[in-house]
């Protein structure tokens, strides 16, 4: 009897999980479907959309009209660049906070998080003017730097939590074995934190890839990433759903594929050579 209840529970939970998952995924699925229809079909009743003709037309138009590869490359440089630089700064910070905490460590962590509570538009003007004075408007350097600053709190927090799970004795052992601080971090801490660093890397690349506020406000032609590419297909007067969908699919496809593959990497990294 008790068993029957739990099986029933399980089924219900599974069904709920699938429904929630589907609801979350549905907009992307719908964008995907719309991208394969003509503009005229895309605004029809949902059921009619499904039954109307499928076509690559929108992709062809988008491909023809925009320099996809340039936007793509900008996105890669900005997201990977900002994340890697962020990690280089965050690893020592997180090490210090996880292994040699001071009395103010917790406060510092909270303070860093609090910077995420400020609406970005609040600092738009100063940052815009700084970039303008330094001649950094519409450059990838500016975006790499700003996105790095924006995501730094998250990177440090994530690394901090991962580092805290690493037994301090192992680092002490490295110290006893004659490792300098640098070697301790490079040979012992980082290899042990690989799964954590990988997921931090992945998450922050995704965040930077999707960042649309700063990438739109600080770029014009040269440094515009895929967010600007998507935005260029929105229109106040005229039909654009299909092309916008196609552009969106093209913009998220690389990150989706990367996420898919590195997810497998991640799971392997997590289960490999368990400690103790």
């Amino acid at each position: 009897m008790a068993r029957a209840v739990t099986t029933q529970r399980k089924t219900i939970n599974t069904v709920i999980a699938w429904i929630v998952g589907f609801l979350i995924f549905f907009p992307i699925l719908w964008i995907f479907i719309l991208s394969f229809h003509t503009e005229g079909d895309a605004i029809k009743h949902p059921f009619e959309v499904l039954t109307s003709r499928w076509t690559f037309e929108s992709y062809a138009t988008v491909q023809e009209r925009s320099n996809y590869f340039r936007h793509f490359w900008n996105s890669v440089v900005i997201s990977v660049g900002s994340t890697v630089i962020g990690l280089i700064i965050a690893v020592p910070s997180a090490w210090a906070m996880a292994f040699v905490p001071g009395r103010r460590t917790k406060d510092v962590l909270m303070w860093m998080l609090s910077t995420k509570m400020l609406p970005p538009v609040g600092v738009l003007l100063p940052i815009y003017l700084i970039c303008q004075n330094l001649g950094l408007l519409d450059t990838r350097v500016a975006l790499v730097f700003i996105l790095m600053m924006i995501n730094l709190p998250i990177i440090i927090w994530m690394l901090y939590t991962y580092f805290r799970e690493i037994p301090g004795e192992i680092l002490e052992a490295a110290r006893m074995d004659g490792a300098s601080l640098r070697n301790e971090v490079i040979y012992v801490l980082l290899p042990m934190a690989v799964p954590g660093i990988a997921s931090t890397l992945l998450l922050n690349i995704i965040l930077a890839w999707n960042e649309a506020f700063w990438t739109l406000t600080l770029t014009a032609a040269k440094a515009a990433p895929l967010t600007a590419f998507i935005a260029s297909y929105s229109s106040p007067e005229g039909l654009f759903y299909a092309k916008l969908s196609a552009a969106s699919i093209m913009a998220i496809a690389p990150i989706l594929i990367m996420g898919w593959f590195s997810q497998k990497q991640l799971v392997r990294g997590l289960t490999f050579g368990a400690v103790k």
Binding site: L129, L137, A228
Partner: peptide, 26 residues
Amino acid sequence: LEWVTLEENVLRQRVTQDIATNGGQF
């Protein structure tokens, strides 16, 4: 020619910003 295509409201905001700060991006 380099084109920056934006949605109307975004364009208005970007262009205003650029022109009010003498940004010289466009």
